[in-house]
C-alpha cells in the first residue's frame, strides 16, 4: 500500500519489554501507557510514529555529516585485523531501534 488508509493507522499490539517499557513497532520502544495517566498520550497514527523515528535517524546522520567529512568507528578500526592494539575489544553492537 502506497497511500494513507485510516484503518491502517492503528499501531500493532504492544509487547512488554520491561515494567516500564513496551514495544509496538519493531525496534521502537514506548512508555508503558499506565504511566501516562496525569499527562495523557496523544492518538498518534502509525505513519507519524514511523516518520518521527525515521526523521530522528536522518537528523543524527545529518549531524555527523555536519561536523566532519566522515565517521570513524571502532568496528572499522577492528576490521584491520592485524592490529595488535585492538586485540580483545568487544564490540557489543546493541540493537537499538
Amino acid at each position: 500500500m502506497l497511500g494513507f488508509l485510516l484503518s491502517r493507522q492503528r499501531p500493532p499490539e504492544a509487547r512488554r519489554i520491561n515494567d516500564d517499557v513496551i514495544m509496538r513497532f519493531d525496534h521502537v520502544y514506548e512508555v508503558a501507557p499506565g504511566k501516562m495517566d496525569l499527562f495523557p498520550q496523544q492518538d498518534i497514527p502509525a505513519w507519524d510514529t514511523l516518520r518521527i523515528v525515521a526523521s530522528r535517524w536522518d537528523h543524527l546522520a545529518w549531524m555527523h555529516d555536519h561536523w566532519a567529512d566522515s565517521v570513524l568507528g571502532v568496528e572499522e578500526l577492528e576490521s584491520e585485523a592485524d592490529d595488535p592494539d585492538l586485540d580483545g575489544i568487544q564490540a557489543s553492537g546493541v540493537p537499538s531501534g
Binding site: G73, V74, L77, D83, L86, G93, P95
Partner: peptide, 21 residues
Amino acid sequence: RRLVRTARESGGTYLGDEVSQ
C-alpha cells in the same frame, strides 16, 4: 586506537558503533 586500548585497559567495554555514534 590508542584511546580504545586505554579504555579497555582501564576496565571499559565498548558499547558498539551504533550506540556510540
